[in-house]
C-alpha cells in the first residue's frame, strides 16, 4: 500500500518561473492492483508518478510505503527502495544506445553484484518471455517501437520489483500493440505484481484491466472511480 498525504510539488521554488505542479494531493494506491493516472497533458501525471516512484521528493507532504515514511529518506536508501520496489518504463523508454539488448536489461541489477550467469539467465528468460529471445545481442537502436517497449519492460522487471511503473506506455503504439501491452500488464497482475500507468489513451482508460483510475487536472485530483471495490 502506498499512501500520499497532502503532497505538493513546486518546481523552481522561489524563482520567477516558480510552478506548482501538484496541489496538496492525498491518495492511496493498492500495491497489488493496476492503477491508472489519467488527465490532460500537463495535469501532473508524470510528476506524480516520479514522486510515487521515489525518483523525486515532494516539496511538502508525506509518502508512506507499507506504512514506512519514505519521503524524507536520504538518497542512498531511496535508491535502494526504488531498486527493489519499483521497475520503470519511461515514456521514451530510455534504453541506453550502443549496448546490446540483454546488457540493457541486465543494467538495473549491476549494482547488486549477482553472479553473472545467474543474471544473464534471468535477463534472457525475461526477453524470451516477451518474444525477444532472438535479439539478445542486437543493439537497441535497431529495435522497433513495440520491441523497445517490451525491452524496457524486461529491464524494469529484472530486479523482480513489486510494482511496475509506466509513463504513457502506449503513446507511440498502434491499437494492436496497445492491446498486446495490456495483455502483458494483465499477465503481471496475474503474477501478483502491481502496475501504475499514466495515460490519456481511451483504449487504456476503457480497458477492464484497470482496477483503479485517478483523474487529474491542473495538479489536483478530480474524482475517483473504483471499478472493482
Amino acid at each position: 500500500m502506498i499512501r500520499l498525504e497532502q503532497i505538493s510539488k513546486v518546481f523552481n521554488q522561489g524563482r520567477p518561473n516558480e510552478f506548482r505542479a501538484i496541489h496538496g494531493l492525498s491518495l492511496g494506491i493498492a500495491a497489488d492492483r493496476v492503477t491508472l493516472f489519467t488527465g490532460p497533458s500537463g495535469s501532473g501525471k508524470t510528476t506524480l508518478l516520479s514522486l510515487v516512484g521515489c525518483l523525486a521528493r515532494p516539496t511538502s507532504g508525506r509518502i508512506y510505503l507499507k506504512g514506512r515514511m519514505i519521503s524524507a529518506l536520504p538518497e542512498r536508501f531511496l535508491t535502494d527502495i526504488r531498486r527493489s520496489t519499483f521497475g520503470f518504463v519511461f515514456q521514451r523508454f530510455n534504453l541506453i544506445k550502443g549496448l546490446s539488448l540483454i546488457e540493457n536489461v541486465m543494467l538495473p541489477a549491476y549494482p547488486l553484484g549477482l553472479p553473472f550467469p545467474e543474471l544473464r539467465e534471468r535477463a534472457a528468460g525475461l526477453l524470451h518471455g516477451l518474444g525477444l529471445g532472438s535479439k539478445l545481442e542486437n543493439r537497441v537502436e535497431w529495435l522497433s517501437g513495440g520491441e523497445a517497449q517490451r525491452a524496457a519492460i524486461c529491464r524494469a522487471l529484472i530486479n523482480d520489483p513489486a510494482i511496475l511503473i509506466a509513463d504513457e506506455p502506449t503513446a507511440n503504439l498502434d491499437s494492436a500493440l496497445t492491446r498486446e501491452f495490456l495483455a502483458i500488464v494483465e499477465g503481471l497482475r496475474g503474477q501478483g505484481k502491481g502496475v501504475i500507468i499514466t495515460s490519456h489513451d481511451p483504449l487504456i482508460a476503457e480497458s477492464a484491466v484497470m482496477e483503479a483510475v485517478i483523474r487529474m487536472r491542473d495538479g489536483r485530483r478530480v474524482e475517483r472511480m473504483a471499478m472493482e471495490d
Binding site: 538518497e75 542512498r76 535508491t79 526504488r82 519511461f90 530510455n94 538495473p108 549491476y110 549494482p111 530486479n159
Partner: peptide
Amino acid sequence: RQEIGILKAIGWETGD
C-alpha cells in the same frame, strides 16, 4: 548526462 540520469533512475546510486 542523459545516460547518467537513466542509470540513476533505474536504480544506480550516485556512487555507482
